[in-house]
Amino acid sequence: MGDKKVHADQKYIDGLAQNNSFIVQAIYDKFVPKVINYIRQNSGDSDRAQDVVQEVLVTIFNQAKDKGFQLTCPFDAYFFLLCKRRWLNELKKSSNKKVTINEETVSTSEPVQEMVFETEIFDEKQTLFDEIFTQLGKACKELLAKTFQIKSMEEVAKALGVSYAYARKKKSLCIGQLTKMAQESPQFAKIKSLY
């Protein structure tokens, strides 16, 4: 995506990343009503719309925080398509079918599709990594949590009552385990093949 121009609507992305209430409020005022309408017209209600909107905004927040996420299309279209696809997926999930990837994309412009695609892959990967992380042994989970919460490895070792060298080694092996689990996951292979 490197050389594409950043859209003026990047302000919404930045505002979300900074937890700027004014921007969040503006998103609700300007863009959310359309989503509610859509979901209501498609077997949902405003309760479900509320959840979908929140989930999508958290995903955008996560992506914006992860690495300089740059919007190259209008926020309106991007946000709406994300919500719409999430809702369709939920509908299909509850009736045990999967939504096809390119559903009704004819009317959506290519940059929007690309952005939505990128966000969805990001979200899928986050979810998968989260899931894999929960499968890790308790000791590893604890050590990694401490490692990334406390910056200095010396302090981590102290907090856990182990030697520095042991904590270092353990950290690599724990992330090694996660690496292995990810590589053995067919879902990870699928996500990898998409980008």
């Binding site: 958290v58 927040f61 925080k65 992380f133 990334f148 690496t179």
Partner: peptide, 26 residues
């Protein structure tokens, strides 16, 4: 993959409180 997981974990914990604040505000 090792690198990806490391940065995932870093992000997960580094932004934990910011994320919770955001969710609350949202």
């Amino acid at each position: 993959t090792y690198k990806e997981f490391s940065s995932f974990l870093e992000n997960k914990y580094k932004n934990e409180s910011a994320r919770n604040d955001f969710k609350e505000n949202l």
